[in-house]
Simulated assay, not measured.
Amino acid sequence: MECAARGSGTPCAPGPPTRRCGNCGAVAYCSLSHQMSHWNDHKDECPRLQQQMRRADALNDFPFSFTVESTLLGGVRCSFLDSIGLHRTGIWRSECCCAPSVMQSNNPGIDGEFGDWSLASTLCPCTEPRSPISTYLSGWKDYYQWRSLPLDSPVAILLHWPLTIYHCFQLSSVQTLTKEVSDKLHIHYLGPDKELHQLAVFGELKALFPGIQLHIELIGPAVPKFRDGEEASLCCYLPCSDESCLCKSYKELYDGGCEGKSSTVTLKLRKGFYHERVRDILKDSCPHLIVAPNAGVAAYASWLPTIELIKEMGIPAVFTDFCEEAAHLAAGCISSVTRSPLRLPIQINPFRQPLVMEDSALYLPCYSNCFIFGM
Rank of each mutant, 00 (worst) to 15 (best):
P14Y: 02
T18A: 15
R19S: 11
C21T: 01
C21K: 02
A28Q: 11
S33N: 04
H42Q: 05
E45N: 06
L49R: 13
Q51G: 09
R55F: 13
A56H: 10
V68Y: 12
E69K: 14
V76T: 15
R77M: 06
F80A: 09
L81T: 05
D82I: 00
D82F: 05
L86T: 02
R93T: 14
S94M: 11
E95N: 10
C96H: 04
C97R: 11
Q104R: 13
S105D: 14
G115Q: 09
W117N: 01
L119G: 05
S121Y: 04
T122K: 13
L123G: 08
P125V: 02
E128M: 12
R130T: 08
S131P: 03
G139C: 04
D142V: 08
Y143D: 08
Y143K: 01
Y144T: 06
L151P: 05
L158M: 04
L159R: 04
H167K: 11
C168H: 05
Q170N: 14
S173E: 11
T178F: 08
L185H: 01
L196W: 10
L199E: 12
F202T: 08
L205G: 07
P210H: 03
I212R: 15
I219E: 08
A222S: 14
K225Y: 03
A232S: 12
C236T: 15
L246G: 15
C247Y: 06
D255I: 02
G257E: 02
S263T: 10
K268G: 06
F273G: 09
E276L: 13
V278Y: 15
K283T: 02
C286A: 06
H288L: 01
V291K: 07
V291H: 01
A298R: 12
W303K: 04
K311A: 12
P316S: 02
P316V: 01
V318G: 09
C323L: 07
E324D: 15
H328I: 07
H328N: 12
A330D: 01
S335L: 00
S340A: 15
L344A: 07
